[in-house]
Amino acid sequence: MDTQPERRVAVIIEDDADIRHLLETVLTQAGFEVIATGNGLDGVQAVRAYDPMVTTLDVSMPGIDGFEAAKRIRAFSNTYLVMLTARDEEIDTLQGLEAGADDYLTKPFRPRELRARVEAMLRRPRQVLAVDGSGPVAPVAEAPAPVAAPAGGSPLAPAAAPMASAPAAQAQPAPSPVAGSPAQPSPVAASAPAEPAAAKSYSREDGWLEHNGLFVNSEMRLAEKEGKSIDLTRSEFDLLNALMESQRRVRSKADLALLLRGESYVTAHFVSEADKRAIEVHMANLRRKLADSITTPRWIETVRGVGYRLAASDD
């Protein structure tokens, strides 16, 4: 059985030759096989051809810009996307994260910081692509098949199953009535309406955290509300999971920024204002996807001047 480690391939999409060479040096020193491109179209083609673990993407490029390139890449690839730009406006950060970026650095950047952020991203679970290539989805463990009832016996099913299987005799269609004979009543179970397919078991023992009807499972990387899956980016999921685990304890923006980097809050790592703004943007996107109100939140509450925490329970 082949146990070779996954190839560490990185694609650089950068029109500035000096920065492109710097990125090549940094990523090569980090152990990556690097493919460098000078525009968005070539970069998208390189990602498709080489399936990189990491892609750095400049925002301002001739032809298609970095935002458009990110959207095209996200349509078929789960590569970690780091956007690099000389612009430091919050709207640019918002556009980059909405286009599918995992992280965002402004120029000039420190090579050591870029390398640290790339390594932090690689420690986080990668998403897998849907079978039809429609885009990244969270990795999901397959649900166990329903337990079939033994022939002629009473149906048996695990407690988490939404509905017990009917006995084999009841699964057969009723025989046609014979003329003159009394009508045979149908078994009650055969006419009983089936329970909704969306019914499922959520429990802390199974790894689910719940708050006001919102469910999160960190092992399966799933978030669900009202029985429907919520499509979150890696960063959005990590932030939501952190708040769910912390409950009403406040998490500061600096704390959350370090969490996304995979670093401990007790260390002396530098957290810039751009890092904190990125957290604000992630939270705004998360609220939008949850359809959560800023003024009367059910899930994410802003603690002015400090950070974020879960809103009070509905109970």
Rank of each mutant, 00 (worst) to 15 (best):
R48L: 04
F67Q: 04
Q95A: 13
S201K: 14
D102F: 07
R287N: 09
P62W: 02
L156G: 03
G135C: 08
P196N: 15
S77K: 00
E301N: 08
D51S: 14
A160D: 09
P136N: 06
Q29H: 15
T93W: 06
S264V: 09
L114G: 12
S181M: 14
A194H: 09
L209G: 13
L286P: 00
K200P: 02
D292I: 02
K200E: 04
G153T: 03
Q45V: 06
R126K: 13
L214N: 07
Q247V: 11
V47S: 00
T233K: 01
G213V: 15
V216Q: 06
A141V: 15
V9K: 12
P167Y: 06
K276H: 00
I300F: 12
Y308H: 07
I64L: 09
E210H: 11
V216S: 02
V47G: 01
R7F: 00
I294Y: 15
L243G: 04
Y50V: 08
L259D: 03
K253L: 02
L240V: 05
G31C: 01
R112Q: 15
V281E: 07
G43D: 04
G96F: 15
S201Q: 10
E24N: 00
P158D: 01
E98Q: 15
P182T: 01
S201R: 14
L129K: 05
F109E: 11
H282I: 08
Q170A: 13
P150E: 11
A169Q: 05
D102S: 09
P177H: 07
D88Q: 09
S235H: 09
T85Y: 11
R110V: 04
D255S: 00
T25P: 00
E224K: 08
T296W: 08
A49M: 12
D92G: 07
N78Y: 07
R298P: 02
A242R: 00
A149K: 03
P150V: 02
S191F: 11
P162D: 02
F32G: 01
M220R: 09
D206M: 11
L122R: 10
A174N: 04
G63P: 04
Y80E: 08
G40D: 03
A284P: 00
F237Q: 12
N212K: 12
T106E: 05
V34I: 15
R248K: 09
R110A: 13
E273M: 04
L260Y: 08
E245Q: 14
P136F: 05
K200I: 02
T56M: 04
A312M: 13
Q45L: 13
D51C: 05
T56F: 01
L209D: 03
V11Q: 02
A151M: 03
W208R: 13
